[in-house]
């Protein structure tokens, strides 16, 4: 095993373990903090793959904004978070079945994908992912329309959030 593989296995294991803690812990704030650990692990995987920009974005957006949003949302509730009822209801087996089936389907799909066993080509030296991304996002022949649509989507998210909060008043 190469050192990279060992690091990857450690990071992946830690990510999965903290993901498991998110759903099993009883304390909601602890669950949010374990979620941060999970998201951090995903960022580390991106970094191992040399996708530095995505790794940093993962931290900035997920740890810096979404995790904070979750914790604020938890703090808005009135109930004491230290104890709550059972963690699963009587439909737990349907959820488990669905999860197992989804996982099986994904494994099947990935298995039948020809590129799975292929080694990735080396990144050419001097390759700047961020400026490539900038090119693609602004070029009329590439992704300029999705780029602008993303802005509209963000606008819709903001308007929706304000609308929901406004009506509750």
């Amino acid at each position: 095993m190469t050192p990279e593989k060992i690091i990857f296995l450690i990071v992946a294991g830690a990510t999965l373990a903290s993901g498991l803690m998110v759903v099993t812990t009883r304390n909601l704030i602890h669950a949010a903090l374990w979620l941060v650990a999970t998201l951090f692990g995903v960022a580390a995987v991106f970094a191992i793959l040399n996708a530095g920009f995505i790794a940093v974005v993962q931290i900035v957006v997920y740890v810096g904004a979404i995790a904070i949003l979750f914790i604020f949302a938890v703090m808005l509730t009135r109930k004491d978070m230290r104890d709550s009822g059972p963690q699963h209801n009587k439909n737990w087996w349907a959820g488990a079945l669905l999860a197992v089936m989804t996982f099986g389907g994904l494994v099947f799909l990935v298995q039948s994908w020809a590129s799975l066993s292929k080694a990735a080509a080396d990144i050419p030296s001097g390759f700047d992912a961020v400026s490539q991304l900038g090119n693609q996002l602004t070029s009329p022949n590439a992704y300029v329309l999705p780029f602008e649509v993303a802005s509209v989507l963000l606008l819709a998210a903001m308007v929706g959030a304000v609308y929901v909060a406004f009506n509750r008043k």
């Binding site: 530095g52 940093v56 974005v57 931290i59 740890v63 810096g64 904004a65 904070i68 992912a129 961020v130």
Partner: peptide, 15 residues
Amino acid sequence: NVGVLFLIAAGAIGT
């Protein structure tokens, strides 16, 4: 090559 955004990411841990 993402140094500037790294500052914000480090700040996220501080928050």
